[in-house]
Amino acid sequence: MPIYSEKVMEHFMNPRNVGEIENPDGVGEVGNPVCGDMMTFYIRVDNNHLSDVKFKTFGCGAAIAVSSIVSEMAMGKTLEEARRITPALVAEELEGLPKNKYHCSNLGAQALNKAIDDYLKKQGKEVKSKRRRKDEKE
């Protein structure tokens, strides 16, 4: 029995939005190679909407699938909508993740949020740091 759902496999085999954005409006990097996974999200913001989302990921199959689905879920959303992409929603969208891979879905949501924080900071706006701090503890 395969450990991953068909949806995870599909996103792992054909990941969407891989790459970097030149002069991005926001960048969010989470994880580190020592703990296993590392994700970097790049966003372009137009009129409070995510007009482009790209990522680079060092990690396992789940980490790559999570990055791909998060980029897809976030694309075109308003910043507020994108903030509401939770790890649980990511896992649900992927038709489930093995228990020991749940942290990968946290990383995806965190990386996107960090990219949004980065954008807001560059704009001189206040960052809703409450959520971020909570995420970083995980």
């Binding site: 496999m9 792992f12 990690g59 396992c60 199959g61 790559i64």
Partner: peptide, 14 residues
């Protein structure tokens, strides 16, 4: 270097 084993195994398995 620069990549992770499980991802390699999954692609090799494919």
């Amino acid at each position: 270097e620069f990549i992770e084993g499980e991802a390699m195994l999954m692609l090799l398995s494919s």
